[in-house]
Design a protein around this nucleic acid. Structure first.
Lengths: 160, 160
DNA sequence: ATGGGTGCAAACAGTTTGCAGTTAC
DNA sequence: GTAACTGCAAACTGTTTGCACCCAT
């Protein structure tokens, strides 16, 4: 699926919706078209504004609902940790983040390999870089352990 | 400044405050102590809860104000894009982000060098990684141009 | 003493939810 | 026909702001 909102990609999207039991509504299609036609990572209000040009009566909450729904189905993603509360970081040195997708915990790590990494040219083409850090998403050891336990001992209903 | 809230680091912090004309209040010190004593990247409510143990009467908005103030002074940082609106990304392939610190624009880029990069061991120690992407912060070409113009032609008041 | 800082309460903005009517399947 | 979806309005939550008092400098 290219990021252009072409007929092909919209057809593919419609198919993916039906596959998941999601109805293919005009609103949903237009919301997706707008989202997929830009790489500015718009927020819900921006998407709403743009969709309104085609569907003047569409409501903001329909946009929210659809973006969230599509995100839940993996048809699009929420950028970074956006939308969560403000989180603060008193570690002022260069470091990277490991974010647990289960519990939301963010842990720092440092890496000499990464520190030595030159900034890719593709990024330099976009502007003057000031800092860079790697965002790793995954499942932290604590959550991993929890899930292991569930698998290993499903006969106990300790995790009702 | 180590991330331990030791007397030394607190003294250093007090000095940095005074250097910037910020008053060294009990509340401010405790807020910083909490922030710097953890790498969980707590949100304001969490910080508030912890500071309350020492200062039961502290208000949540004092915590907000101080965290924001300290962030503005570079004494701590706001994590990722947190706190902004929800932003959505329909680019489902692996890609990285260039975020402009001036205008907030986020642009995607891909990089074969990065794609080939093995995940550092330090991250694997924290859990099972699912995805990784580089977050580059800097000044985008548009903002860069704007600032150049200001420097080069200050005699014209085209940028009043 | 005095300007910044604090606490309170009220305002705000973005997001979510309940409901009744509508639409895709 | 029915379950999913939409639009509206009201609720909610995290964050910000105005104001009067207080405290570090």
């Amino acid at each position: 699926m290219e990021k252009d909102g072409s007929k092909d990609s919209m057809d593919a999207f419609a198919r993916e919706c039906r596959d998941r039991g999601l109805k293919v509504t005009y609103q949903r299609m237009e919301i997706f078209r707008v989202a997929v036609s830009t790489d500015e990572h718009p927020d819900a209000v921006t998407v709403h504004k743009r969709v309104k040009k085609r569907i003047p009566t569409i409501s903001l909450d329909t946009v929210y609902r659809n973006l969230k729904l599509l995100a839940a189905h993996g048809l699009l993603a929420v950028v970074g940790t956006s939308g969560e509360h403000l989180r603060f970081d008193a570690n002022r040195g260069p470091h990277h983040h490991f974010t647990c997708v289960r519990c939301g915990m963010i842990r720092d790590f440092t890496s000499e390999v990464l520190a030595a990494l030159p900034l890719p040219r593709e990024a330099q083409d976009l502007g003057v870089p000031l800092s860079q850090h790697l965002e790793v998403k995954g499942i932290c050891v604590a959550c991993e352990k929890k899930e292991q336990r569930k698998k290993e001992a499903p006969r106990h209903k300790r995790d009702a």
